[in-house]
Write a protein that binds this DNA or RNA. Structure first.
Lengths: 214, 214
DNA sequence: CGCGGTATACTCGGCTCAGAGTATCCGCCA
DNA sequence: TGGCGGATACTCTGAGCCGAGTATACCGCG
């Protein structure tokens, strides 16, 4: 778990494309886009050039030539250094090997959910179900399209992972929404009363304590 | 999907605790820690004070008094404004309602996985299984501990969500590792040959095209 | 009664990042 | 042939964010 000198995942993608052949930054973006990597790694120009620069400073890549055609801005072609190859292997291994805690927005939302009254939350979760279904459709469409263009399944493994995670969340959210709608959720009673301003629900978060929440 | 003036999830947590009662920044952090919110929302001092400041500038919160005890640094107590209350409700609703695409590291890792040879990847995934199991244990321990201190289940819903997502990932990774170990994964053959430098696997990513990868 | 360790309460500087803006070239249609 | 849209290829600015560092107070222990 060494701290990486360049920690943006886009840098990992840069190292990966350069492990194939030398190229200039814009071409890297094209390559990654062509393979549909923008689905799993955020590619944006601002970060791309910053990241290439940072990789250069860390000596993981180096410029091999610069040229210009016409009066276009100069293109600098970069190539991977041996140190860069090592970094690529180690970093990628670490990512596959260890699961680091991330903080998805929805988890934060859930943890503050009781701030809203339960009658409000139920329809919101229903909307989420729809939203997840749409996203699921997009992922499937993306996979079909990529496969149609001849890409092997191995190169769509990250999309399969995303699909599976979406399905898992979908099932869970559906279940939670149902419990809310049918009133079978534990603690729903006090949650409701608390939002009515009921004094008897002062101890809301904690069983048998004075009032406070979140 | 309005763009938030202050977009750090920590700001949402600040609005949420202030919806209960006015307090100073350090107390907010204590409250959130006490409820175990540091599991679902990144709380760190640097961000906390920046975020409080930003919320002030956006008029979602305002200072109500400042005092000092002894020769300790000054404490500023903040309270929620009506605009802040509206922001809290809307922001939280949006998070619960819509799923926005996030970019977990592991997904990026998977999408670049073929850079490593398959014999290397299999044991890495096995290590991930272990790592996920450890994390799962931590989440369970956290829930038990919180429940033991009297916290209602409703306030641990985000932990239940995390547990479920961990289980889903665990099952999937186990399955993938197995397929690799038993050689039943589609495309495993060429993946292997490609790393041997075999010329017949030049068309690796794409079926029937010249060599390139990622 | 002196000392170290822990809790309190911030501050600061530097790095990262996003995304809007800029400038050039090419193809095409009228 | 002139103009316009779209692709190419960056650049720049400002805001966000982190985490190490700082300084004081309190508390227990020998």
């Amino acid at each position: 778990m060494v701290k990486r000198k360049v920690s943006n995942p886009l840098a990992l993608a840069v190292l990966a494309v350069l492990s194939e052949s030398s190229m200039h930054p814009y071409e890297m973006a094209q390559k990654l886009r062509g393979r549909g990597k923008e689905q799993s790694i955020r590619i944006n120009y601002g970060s791309l050039y910053t990241v290439v620069d940072a990789l250069c400073r860390a000596s993981f890549i180096e410029p091999v030539e610069t040229f210009r055609e016409g009066r276009r801005p100069e293109r600098t072609v970069y190539s991977l250094t041996p140190a860069g190859r090592v970094e690529l292997r180690e970093w990628l291994s670490e990512i596959l090997r260890t699961s680091t805690k991330e903080y998805p927005e929805f988890e934060a939302g859930l943890s503050l959910m009781p701030v809203l009254p339960p009658e409000t939350v139920a329809p919101l979760l229903r909307q989420r179900v729809e939203s997840l279904e749409i996203r699921l459709g997009e992922v499937r469409a993306f996979m079909d399209q990529m496969r149609a263009s001849g890409l092997r399944r191995l190169f769509l493994i990250e999309a399969e992972y995303e699909e599976m995670m979406l399905r898992a969340e979908l099932a869970w959210v559906k279940c939670l929404a149902e419990e809310l709608e049918e009133g079978t959720l534990e603690d729903l009673e006090i949650w409701y009363r608390w939002h009515q301003g009921d004094e008897s629900s002062r101890s809301f978060a904690i069983r048998g304590e004075e009032r406070h929440m979140t």
